[in-house]
């Protein structure tokens, strides 16, 4: 049979394809629906958080930082509860990473704060001597792309029924609503409102001035994102 296949490239290719496609079908599809159901307490990203997530991706933070707490005592001691599938229901793309040059960040919002991030992102070695994390000074001047974040919100709400402007259940039994703007201007206003809360805890005057004048530097967005990682 193999000799025959080797003389008939078409059938040879078909057989190869079937063999390699087969595993994919068995492995990927059965659990697709189940895996993506959100657990209680998981909400969609706000506009500013999403913009921050884009900054995170743009700078490949995931090259050094994972967002996946594995079920080992040593990891839950260090980072908090192990990951649950449903916690990632709104993560497009997922950001588990594959290398921990730096620590896991899945729950960093639980144990680091705005002012600390501000100093750390500006100059990591000043707070953590010996770190090899780069300094991200330009984030203090680059302006975050709220428009694209908003476009993404619109897209996922439309195509994947992500529940914006809809109550979602929280762990304490309450309901939370994540708002999405009706228009670009509206989205900017929402993001700015969030940004003001963050800059209140920041020290960098340039950043404070920018937000006061209605612009949101990348650093504010990424801190909003990291504070939300819980």
């Amino acid at each position: 049979m193999f000799h025959w296949l080797e003389k008939n490239p078409f059938f040879f290719s078909v057989v190869v394809f079937v063999i390699i496609a087969f595993a994919g079908i068995v492995e990927i599809f059965p659990n697709f629906a189940q895996q993506s159901r959100p657990v209680i307490g998981t909400k969609p990203y706000t506009t500013l958080e999403l913009a921050g997530r884009h900054v995170y991706i743009k700078n490949s933070c995931n090259a050094c930082h994972s967002q996946l707490v594995r079920p080992f005592k040593s990891e839950t001691d260090r980072y908090g509860d192990y990951s649950l599938s449903g916690e990632y229901a709104y993560d497009r793309p997922f950001l588990w990473g594959s290398k921990r040059t730096g620590p896991d960040l899945l729950r960093v919002g639980n144990y680091r704060t705005t002012d600390w991030h501000e100093i750390h992102m500006k100059d990591p070695a000043s707070v953590v001597p010996g770190t090899n994390m780069p300094a991200y000074k330009w984030m203090f001047t680059n302006i975050a792309d709220i428009n694209t974040a908003f476009a993404e919100q619109l897209t996922i709400a439309q195509f994947f029924s992500v529940p914006y402007n809809t109550p979602v259940p929280m762990k304490d039994g309450s309901m939370a609503v994540v708002k999405m703007g009706k228009s670009v201007a509206d989205a900017h206003a929402l993001a700015l409102a969030e940004a003001r809360i963050i800059v209140a805890d920041m020290k960098d005057q340039g950043v404070k001035d920018a937000v006061a004048s209605g612009q949101i530097p990348e650093i504010v967005a990424i801190i909003a994102y990291m504070n939300g990682l819980k």
Binding site: N31, F94, N147, E152, Q153, T155, A157
Partner: peptide, 27 residues
């Protein structure tokens, strides 16, 4: 994506979101 008041092509043109989310995306 289209906003409630009908704006579309908001943001940079080359941006996209993955068809899969979370664990599925990882898979």
């Amino acid at each position: 994506g289209v906003s409630e008041i009908g704006e579309s092509s908001v943001g940079v043109w080359y941006h996209s979101v993955s068809m899969y989310a979370g664990t599925n995306d990882a898979l």
